[in-house]
Amino acid sequence: MSIIGSIGNLAVDQAALRLRLDTASRQVSTGQKAQVFGDLRPEARRAIDLRGEVARREAYANAADRALARADATQTVLSRLQEIAATMGSEALRAKTMAATGAEGLARTASAALEEVAALLNTRHGGEYLFSGSDVNAPPVPDAETVRTGPMATAIAAAVATLDPANAAAVLADSVTAATGAATTPFSAFLEGPGTTEAQRAVQVADGERVQVGVFANRSQDGAVATSWGRELLRNLSVMAAATPAVAATDQGWADLMDGVVTAMGAAATSLANEQGMLGAAEQRIGAIRSAHKDTLVALRAQLGAVEEVDLAQAAAEMSQLKMRLEASYEVTSMLSRLSLTALLR
């Protein structure tokens, strides 16, 4: 073979070496075997499938994270509401035997609790109201800031003002009417309309797996609306907030009225405990599924890495060898070029 032919063959080999060196350099730089799936043949299809599964699992895990954060915020509110129900139920029990002069203090305490409950029911998380059902952009208690002087509280105060030794049951019935009436309800039009029958908010945490995490301000877990824990809290706190020395002086009427409040507040506290229990069970289910997703993601990413990623140490060593081979080839080409030139000059 002539010197010129040898130089030509070396040029072809050098082009191939440069291509391999470029690929090795990119792999060391990016850590990836290829820039496009097509260059991963014959494992391109497997890489695509693995990436799809990783994306699906990540979406479910992220949804679970958001749902757990929302549930945790809801649990905090429910815990405080249950505490208020228990505390104010005890205050109502104590009020049965208090002197008439203590009525004003009870009214102030109940008014403050009434405002707090309304504000708690309007708690937001992630920019959405927690207790509004699907109407997440509207507060469940539209007039929370003025709940003490709103239609429900005003109607209940008027009923309580008529209390006498024998009509406590009628006064309590009037308070129920005020809390449930279309013109006096403290809740939003959505909650008192479509919201009374819509399904609880649920989160999709796996294929075919939806877990309910929604809690309504005006509905209990058992589906009760007229006697839901939220309505009963607002109603009975309004009754207590309407206390006056004259009302407390009705003796048996006052005692009977407070008995009704104690019973209702106890039922509300129990309902809130059930709400917390149901939500807690949902949190455990979501947490278990999220953990399964994250464990699976570790395995999937390892498999995907084996398909798409290079061993950096091995790639770096190969790149160094390719550089040496290419430099040696250039030296041989240079030497042959000098020999060829010498032959031509003879």
Rank of each mutant, 00 (worst) to 15 (best):
Q284L: 07
Q276R: 13
T227R: 08
Q32C: 12
G52Y: 04
A92F: 04
L312V: 15
A110S: 05
Q35W: 08
M324A: 15
S6R: 15
D13G: 06
A24C: 11
I4R: 15
N274P: 03
A288I: 01
L81G: 04
A47N: 07
V307F: 02
G181I: 08
S6G: 13
V28F: 03
T333C: 08
A16Q: 13
E91Q: 14
G181V: 07
E104V: 10
A282S: 15
Y330C: 10
A343P: 06
R285L: 06
D49E: 14
K323M: 10
A71K: 00
T342G: 14
R148C: 03
K294Y: 00
L68T: 10
L322T: 02
V28E: 04
A64L: 02
R346I: 12
A168E: 02
A85I: 02
M98H: 09
L191K: 00
A217S: 06
M319R: 07
L163E: 02
R20E: 03
A273H: 04
Q75A: 13
L345M: 15
A99E: 14
A302S: 15
D207N: 14
A119S: 15
D22Y: 09
E275G: 12
S271P: 05
V332A: 08
D143A: 13
G287M: 00
A248H: 01
L304S: 06
D259T: 08
L19Q: 12
L17P: 00
A224G: 11
D49T: 15
L272E: 00
L233N: 01
E309G: 12
G133A: 05
A328G: 11
S291N: 08
E83W: 13
R219T: 02
E318I: 10
D251R: 12
Q276T: 10
S25T: 10
A282T: 03
G150C: 03
G277K: 09
L237W: 00
V205N: 00
R45P: 09
G89Y: 01
L21I: 03
D65W: 05
R231T: 01
A159W: 01
L106M: 09
M152S: 06
A202W: 04
